[in-house]
């Protein structure tokens, strides 16, 4: 286990390689790709996070997933005593009020609409990165 002040690990649940690529690209500019763990599906994320994987400091969750739906992943993460404290930032292609409300209802800590514009994405990810860096996030101990 590393010291808490180091950049806490970030979990990204994203099935789309292209979207992950875009995300990583921004993250790479701001920090190293170290400390970013990608899950390509909801099943994979739940298996890892509810299983042996270290608890991340922040979870970025795409709601539009194949197989088990993003909203169900969110619900299960928030139902887990160990993971409940980890902030979950939801990424979604939808900007519907109903979808946004439902996500917060299910325990999302932030809702980010996936923008089409890369510049916009960059701005959002940089803000997220800053938040990730300066916020005191849940500890690493299991």
């Amino acid at each position: 286990m590393e010291a808490a002040r180091a950049l806490s690990p970030l979990a990204v649940v994203e099935d789309s390689d292209e979207d992950f690529e875009a995300l990583s690209r921004v993250l790479r500019e701001t920090t190293s790709r170290e400390g970013v763990k990608r899950y390509a599906s909801g099943e994979e994320a739940l298996a890892g996070l509810l299983g042996e994987d270290p608890r991340p400091a922040l979870i970025l969750l795409d709601l539009n997933l194949p197989g088990i739906r993003g909203m169900d992943v969110l619900t299960q993460l928030k139902a887990d005593a160990r993971l409940r404290v980890v902030p979950v930032v939801v990424l979604s292609g939808s900007s519907r009020e109903e979808d946004i409300d439902a996500a917060y209802e299910a325990g999302a800590n932030a809702y980010l609409s996936k923008p089409l514009d890369y510049t916009e994405l960059r701005r959002i990810v940089v803000s997220l990165h800053d938040f990730w860096r300066i916020a005191t996030l849940p500890g690493q101990s299991r």
């Binding site: 292209e18 979207d19 539009n64 292609g93 939808s94 089409l116």
Partner: peptide, 17 residues
């Protein structure tokens, strides 16, 4: 419409890359 937006996002992003 919803699903079409994802590849579209990819096209847009990779063009930017």
């Amino acid at each position: 419409a919803h699903d079409l937006k994802e590849p579209l996002r990819g096209i847009s992003n990779f063009t930017a890359f």
